[in-house]
Protein backbone atom coordinates (compact mmCIF):
# COMPACT_ATOMS: atom_id res chain seq x y z
CA UNK A 1 0.00 0.00 0.00
CA UNK A 2 2.69 2.45 0.97
CA UNK A 3 5.93 2.44 -0.91
CA UNK A 4 8.40 4.29 1.18
CA UNK A 5 10.34 6.83 -0.73
CA UNK A 6 13.66 7.41 0.83
CA UNK A 7 14.88 10.89 0.19
CA UNK A 8 16.47 10.62 -3.22
CA UNK A 9 20.18 10.96 -3.30
CA UNK A 10 21.51 13.34 -5.88
CA UNK A 11 23.62 11.08 -8.05
CA UNK A 12 26.48 13.52 -8.58
CA UNK A 13 27.08 13.79 -4.86
CA UNK A 14 28.03 10.18 -4.55
CA UNK A 15 29.66 9.63 -7.93
CA UNK A 16 32.89 7.89 -7.08
CA UNK A 17 35.98 8.78 -9.04
CA UNK A 18 37.38 6.09 -11.26
CA UNK A 19 40.68 5.94 -9.47
CA UNK A 20 40.60 6.44 -5.74
CA UNK A 21 44.24 7.06 -5.05
CA UNK A 22 46.41 10.01 -4.15
CA UNK A 23 45.11 13.52 -4.59
CA UNK A 24 41.92 12.37 -6.24
CA UNK A 25 40.97 10.26 -3.26
CA UNK A 26 41.69 13.22 -1.04
CA UNK A 27 39.51 15.45 -3.20
CA UNK A 28 36.76 12.87 -3.04
CA UNK A 29 36.97 12.72 0.73
CA UNK A 30 36.92 16.53 0.92
CA UNK A 31 33.77 16.61 -1.16
CA UNK A 32 32.15 14.14 1.22
CA UNK A 33 33.21 16.27 4.15
CA UNK A 34 31.46 19.27 2.63
CA UNK A 35 28.32 17.28 1.87
CA UNK A 36 28.32 15.70 5.32
CA UNK A 37 28.59 19.01 7.11
CA UNK A 38 25.73 20.44 5.07
CA UNK A 39 23.48 17.50 5.81
CA UNK A 40 24.62 17.50 9.42
CA UNK A 41 23.51 21.12 9.84
CA UNK A 42 19.99 20.13 8.82
CA UNK A 43 19.93 17.22 11.25
CA UNK A 44 21.34 19.45 13.96
CA UNK A 45 18.52 21.95 13.55
CA UNK A 46 15.93 19.21 13.97
CA UNK A 47 17.83 17.61 16.84
CA UNK A 48 17.69 20.84 18.85
CA UNK A 49 13.91 20.49 18.99
CA UNK A 50 14.13 16.94 20.32
CA UNK A 51 16.69 17.80 22.91
CA UNK A 52 14.87 20.92 24.17
CA UNK A 53 11.60 19.10 24.69
CA UNK A 54 13.34 16.16 26.29
CA UNK A 55 15.28 18.47 28.55
CA UNK A 56 12.16 20.16 29.85
CA UNK A 57 9.48 17.51 30.09
CA UNK A 58 11.53 14.36 29.59
CA UNK A 59 9.55 13.02 26.67
CA UNK A 60 10.47 12.11 23.12
CA UNK A 61 8.36 14.20 20.83
CA UNK A 62 7.81 11.64 18.10
CA UNK A 63 5.83 14.12 16.04
CA UNK A 64 8.83 16.44 15.75
CA UNK A 65 10.09 14.82 12.54
CA UNK A 66 6.69 15.38 11.01
CA UNK A 67 6.72 19.03 12.03
CA UNK A 68 9.93 19.21 10.02
CA UNK A 69 8.07 17.66 7.09
CA UNK A 70 5.22 20.14 7.50
CA UNK A 71 7.82 22.90 7.50
CA UNK A 72 9.22 21.62 4.20
CA UNK A 73 5.74 21.60 2.64
CA UNK A 74 4.97 25.07 3.95
CA UNK A 75 8.25 26.27 2.43
CA UNK A 76 7.46 24.77 -0.94
CA UNK A 77 3.95 26.23 -0.93
CA UNK A 78 5.34 29.61 0.05
CA UNK A 79 8.02 29.58 -2.64
CA UNK A 80 5.48 28.70 -5.32
CA UNK A 81 3.03 31.22 -3.96
CA UNK A 82 5.63 33.99 -3.92
CA UNK A 83 6.67 33.09 -7.46
CA UNK A 84 3.08 33.37 -8.62
CA UNK A 85 2.87 36.75 -6.92
CA UNK A 86 5.88 37.81 -8.92
CA UNK A 87 8.43 37.84 -6.12
CA UNK A 88 11.32 36.06 -7.73
CA UNK A 89 14.35 37.73 -6.18
CA UNK A 90 15.91 34.73 -4.50
CA UNK A 91 17.11 36.30 -1.24
CA UNK A 92 13.80 38.05 -0.64
CA UNK A 93 11.77 34.97 -1.51
CA UNK A 94 13.90 32.85 0.80
CA UNK A 95 13.65 35.29 3.67
CA UNK A 96 9.88 35.58 3.35
CA UNK A 97 9.54 31.80 3.05
CA UNK A 98 11.67 31.30 6.10
CA UNK A 99 9.40 33.53 8.15
CA UNK A 100 6.23 32.05 6.72
CA UNK A 101 7.27 28.42 7.23
CA UNK A 102 8.79 28.97 10.67
CA UNK A 103 5.76 30.92 11.85
CA UNK A 104 3.16 28.44 10.71
CA UNK A 105 5.18 25.39 11.74
CA UNK A 106 5.47 27.02 15.16
CA UNK A 107 1.68 27.18 15.21
CA UNK A 108 1.63 23.47 14.41
CA UNK A 109 4.09 22.79 17.20
CA UNK A 110 2.02 24.80 19.64
CA UNK A 111 -1.19 23.05 18.64
CA UNK A 112 0.34 19.59 18.92
CA UNK A 113 1.54 20.33 22.45
CA UNK A 114 -1.74 21.91 23.47
CA UNK A 115 -3.95 19.16 22.04
CA UNK A 116 -1.97 15.99 22.46
CA UNK A 117 0.55 16.46 25.26
CA UNK A 118 -0.62 19.02 27.78
CA UNK A 119 -3.76 17.14 28.86
CA UNK A 120 -1.54 14.14 29.59
CA UNK A 121 0.85 15.73 32.03
CA UNK A 122 0.73 13.55 35.11
CA UNK A 123 -1.00 10.73 33.26
CA UNK A 124 0.53 7.27 33.24
CA UNK A 125 3.93 6.68 31.76
CA UNK A 126 3.08 5.42 28.29
CA UNK A 127 0.31 7.94 27.61
CA UNK A 128 2.37 10.84 26.23
CA UNK A 129 4.50 8.48 24.13
CA UNK A 130 1.48 6.88 22.53
CA UNK A 131 -0.16 10.23 22.02
CA UNK A 132 3.00 11.49 20.32
CA UNK A 133 3.05 8.49 18.00
CA UNK A 134 -0.59 9.18 17.21
CA UNK A 135 0.21 12.80 16.44
CA UNK A 136 3.04 11.74 14.14
CA UNK A 137 0.69 9.45 12.22
CA UNK A 138 -1.93 12.20 12.06
CA UNK A 139 0.46 14.79 10.63
CA UNK A 140 1.86 12.38 8.06
CA UNK A 141 -1.51 11.28 6.79
CA UNK A 142 -2.96 14.76 7.03
CA UNK A 143 -0.33 16.00 4.62
CA UNK A 144 -0.76 12.92 2.45
CA UNK A 145 -4.51 13.46 2.22
CA UNK A 146 -4.19 17.20 1.77
CA UNK A 147 -1.26 17.33 -0.63
CA UNK A 148 -1.26 13.93 -2.29
CA UNK A 149 1.15 11.05 -1.98
CA UNK A 150 3.32 11.89 -5.00
CA UNK A 151 6.77 13.39 -4.50
CA UNK A 152 6.97 17.15 -4.97
CA UNK A 153 9.96 18.20 -7.06
CA UNK A 154 11.30 21.73 -7.26
CA UNK A 155 13.79 23.42 -9.54
CA UNK A 156 17.08 24.37 -7.99
CA UNK A 157 16.87 27.92 -6.68
CA UNK A 158 20.57 28.57 -6.44
CA UNK A 159 22.36 26.56 -9.11
CA UNK A 160 26.11 26.51 -9.41
CA UNK A 161 28.82 27.05 -6.89
CA UNK A 162 32.53 27.39 -6.39
CA UNK A 163 34.91 24.83 -7.70
CA UNK A 164 37.45 24.41 -4.93
CA UNK A 165 39.71 21.87 -6.53
CA UNK A 166 39.92 20.06 -9.79
CA UNK A 167 41.92 16.90 -9.85
CA UNK A 168 41.83 14.86 -13.02
CA UNK A 169 38.21 14.03 -13.61
CA UNK A 170 37.01 14.85 -10.11
CA UNK A 171 36.10 18.37 -9.08
CA UNK A 172 35.38 19.41 -5.52
CA UNK A 173 32.25 21.54 -5.55
CA UNK A 174 31.05 23.90 -2.90
CA UNK A 175 27.62 24.84 -4.14
CA UNK A 176 25.91 28.14 -3.36
CA UNK A 177 23.17 26.07 -1.86
CA UNK A 178 25.54 24.50 0.61
CA UNK A 179 26.92 27.87 1.57
CA UNK A 180 23.39 29.17 2.03
CA UNK A 181 22.46 26.17 4.19
CA UNK A 182 25.46 26.45 6.45
CA UNK A 183 25.10 30.24 6.71
CA UNK A 184 21.39 30.05 7.52
CA UNK A 185 21.97 27.38 10.12
CA UNK A 186 24.70 29.36 11.80
CA UNK A 187 22.61 32.53 11.88
CA UNK A 188 19.56 30.74 13.23
CA UNK A 189 21.57 28.87 15.84
CA UNK A 190 23.30 32.05 16.96
CA UNK A 191 19.94 33.75 17.40
CA UNK A 192 18.69 30.71 19.25
CA UNK A 193 21.71 30.61 21.57
CA UNK A 194 21.20 34.28 22.34
CA UNK A 195 17.56 33.54 23.12
CA UNK A 196 18.36 30.75 25.51
CA UNK A 197 21.30 32.34 27.31
CA UNK A 198 20.47 36.03 27.35
CA UNK A 199 16.72 36.54 27.57
CA UNK A 200 14.21 36.09 30.42
CA UNK A 201 12.43 33.48 28.32
CA UNK A 202 15.66 31.53 27.99
CA UNK A 203 16.16 31.79 31.72
CA UNK A 204 12.76 30.35 32.48
CA UNK A 205 13.39 27.59 29.97
CA UNK A 206 16.63 26.68 31.66
CA UNK A 207 14.95 26.84 35.05
CA UNK A 208 12.20 24.50 33.89
CA UNK A 209 14.82 22.16 32.52
CA UNK A 210 16.53 21.98 35.90
CA UNK A 211 13.41 21.37 37.93
CA UNK A 212 9.96 21.84 36.47
CA UNK A 213 8.11 21.68 39.77
CA UNK A 214 10.43 24.08 41.54
CA UNK A 215 10.32 26.52 38.63
CA UNK A 216 6.55 26.47 38.90
CA UNK A 217 6.70 27.18 42.62
CA UNK A 218 8.98 30.10 41.97
CA UNK A 219 6.36 31.73 39.81
CA UNK A 220 7.49 30.72 36.35
CA UNK A 221 4.51 30.01 34.11
CA UNK A 222 5.63 26.48 33.24
CA UNK A 223 2.78 25.82 30.80
CA UNK A 224 3.74 28.87 28.84
CA UNK A 225 7.42 27.97 28.92
CA UNK A 226 6.72 24.46 27.70
CA UNK A 227 4.52 25.82 24.93
CA UNK A 228 7.26 28.18 23.86
CA UNK A 229 9.74 25.35 23.83
CA UNK A 230 7.57 23.51 21.35
CA UNK A 231 7.10 26.67 19.33
CA UNK A 232 10.82 27.34 19.10
CA UNK A 233 11.63 23.72 18.36
CA UNK A 234 9.03 23.64 15.60
CA UNK A 235 10.31 26.87 14.08
CA UNK A 236 13.85 25.46 13.96
CA UNK A 237 12.52 22.25 12.40
CA UNK A 238 10.73 24.32 9.77
CA UNK A 239 13.99 26.08 8.93
CA UNK A 240 15.51 22.62 8.57
CA UNK A 241 12.57 21.70 6.33
CA UNK A 242 13.24 24.66 4.07
CA UNK A 243 16.95 23.82 3.87
CA UNK A 244 16.16 20.16 3.16
CA UNK A 245 13.87 21.24 0.33
CA UNK A 246 16.56 23.49 -1.12
CA UNK A 247 19.24 20.82 -0.81
CA UNK A 248 17.41 17.81 -2.20
CA UNK A 249 14.93 19.69 -4.37
CA UNK A 250 12.24 17.11 -3.69
CA UNK A 251 10.00 16.29 -0.73
CA UNK A 252 7.09 14.06 0.16
CA UNK A 253 4.90 13.41 3.17
CA UNK A 254 7.18 10.67 4.44
CA UNK A 255 10.47 12.57 4.82
CA UNK A 256 9.76 13.37 8.47
CA UNK A 257 10.04 9.77 9.56
CA UNK A 258 13.63 9.09 8.55
CA UNK A 259 14.88 12.60 9.19
CA UNK A 260 13.17 12.49 12.57
CA UNK A 261 14.77 9.23 13.65
CA UNK A 262 18.16 10.42 12.44
CA UNK A 263 17.86 13.74 14.20
CA UNK A 264 16.80 11.94 17.34
CA UNK A 265 19.87 9.74 16.98
CA UNK A 266 21.88 12.93 16.68
CA UNK A 267 20.34 14.28 19.88
CA UNK A 268 21.13 11.06 21.75
CA UNK A 269 24.62 10.87 20.31
CA UNK A 270 25.36 14.43 21.37
CA UNK A 271 23.83 13.84 24.78
CA UNK A 272 20.10 14.35 25.03
CA UNK A 273 19.24 17.53 26.90
CA UNK A 274 22.39 19.27 25.71
CA UNK A 275 21.90 21.96 23.05
CA UNK A 276 25.49 22.07 21.75
CA UNK A 277 25.35 18.30 21.86
CA UNK A 278 22.40 18.27 19.47
CA UNK A 279 24.29 20.29 16.88
CA UNK A 280 27.43 18.24 17.34
CA UNK A 281 25.45 15.02 17.09
CA UNK A 282 23.74 16.32 13.96
CA UNK A 283 27.08 17.02 12.32
CA UNK A 284 28.37 13.57 13.23
CA UNK A 285 25.28 11.81 11.93
CA UNK A 286 25.44 13.83 8.72
CA UNK A 287 29.09 12.91 8.25
CA UNK A 288 28.51 9.24 9.10
CA UNK A 289 25.66 9.03 6.63
CA UNK A 290 27.51 10.71 3.81
CA UNK A 291 30.78 8.86 4.30
CA UNK A 292 28.98 5.57 4.69
CA UNK A 293 27.13 6.19 1.43
CA UNK A 294 30.28 7.24 -0.32
CA UNK A 295 32.52 4.40 0.76
CA UNK A 296 30.21 1.50 1.61
CA UNK A 297 26.71 1.40 0.28
CA UNK A 298 24.01 3.94 -0.36
CA UNK A 299 21.32 1.33 0.23
CA UNK A 300 22.30 0.82 3.84
CA UNK A 301 22.90 4.44 4.78
CA UNK A 302 19.81 4.56 6.99
CA UNK A 303 20.82 1.32 8.63
CA UNK A 304 24.15 2.94 9.46
CA UNK A 305 22.45 5.80 11.28
CA UNK A 306 20.22 3.42 13.25
CA UNK A 307 23.14 1.16 14.09
CA UNK A 308 24.92 4.21 15.52
CA UNK A 309 21.86 4.90 17.67
CA UNK A 310 21.83 1.39 19.07
CA UNK A 311 25.59 1.39 19.68
CA UNK A 312 25.45 4.73 21.48
CA UNK A 313 22.62 3.56 23.66
CA UNK A 314 24.52 0.43 24.61
CA UNK A 315 27.90 1.97 25.31
CA UNK A 316 27.23 5.56 26.24
CA UNK A 317 23.57 6.29 26.79
CA UNK A 318 24.38 9.74 28.13
CA UNK A 319 25.93 10.72 24.79
CA UNK A 320 29.02 12.81 24.15
CA UNK A 321 28.12 15.97 26.04
CA UNK A 322 25.29 14.68 28.19
CA UNK A 323 25.33 14.15 31.92
CA UNK A 324 24.70 10.68 33.25
CA UNK A 325 21.23 10.51 34.67
CA UNK A 326 21.06 9.85 38.38
CA UNK A 327 17.97 7.95 39.31
CA UNK A 328 15.95 9.67 41.98
CA UNK A 329 14.65 7.12 44.43
Amino acid sequence: MFVTRLAPVRPDVFARPVRTEGVEALAYALQQLINGVTLGMIYGLIAVGYTMVYGIIGMINFAHGDIFMVGAFLSLISLLGLASLGITAVPLALALTLLFAAGLAALYGWTVERVAYRPLRGSFRLAPLISAIGMSIVLQNFVQVGQGARVKPMNALLPGGIELMNEGDFAVQLSWMQIAIVATTLIVLTAFTWLVTRTPLGRSMRACEQDLKMAGLLGIDTDRTISLTFVIGAALAAVAGLLFLLYYGVIDFFIGFLAGVKAFTAAVLGGIGSLPGAVLGGLLIGLIEVFWSAYFSVEYKDVAAFAVLILVLIFRPSGILGRAEVEKV
Binding site: M1, A116, I130, I133, M135, I137, Q140, N141
Partner: peptide, 20 residues
Protein backbone atom coordinates in the same frame (compact mmCIF):
# COMPACT_ATOMS: atom_id res chain seq x y z
CA UNK B 1 -6.84 3.38 3.42
CA UNK B 2 -5.28 6.83 3.74
CA UNK B 3 -8.09 8.10 5.90
CA UNK B 4 -7.84 4.93 7.91
CA UNK B 5 -4.37 5.84 9.11
CA UNK B 6 -5.54 9.36 9.83
CA UNK B 7 -8.34 7.89 11.92
CA UNK B 8 -5.92 5.54 13.72
CA UNK B 9 -3.62 8.41 14.58
CA UNK B 10 -6.45 10.58 15.84
CA UNK B 11 -7.84 7.63 17.77
CA UNK B 12 -4.50 7.15 19.55
CA UNK B 13 -4.42 10.78 20.64
CA UNK B 14 -8.08 10.99 21.61
CA UNK B 15 -7.91 7.74 23.56
CA UNK B 16 -4.89 8.88 25.52
CA UNK B 17 -6.48 12.23 26.31
CA UNK B 18 -9.91 10.95 27.26
CA UNK B 19 -9.50 7.35 28.41
CA UNK B 20 -5.83 6.43 28.81
Amino acid sequence: PTYRMLIFGLALVVMMVLRP
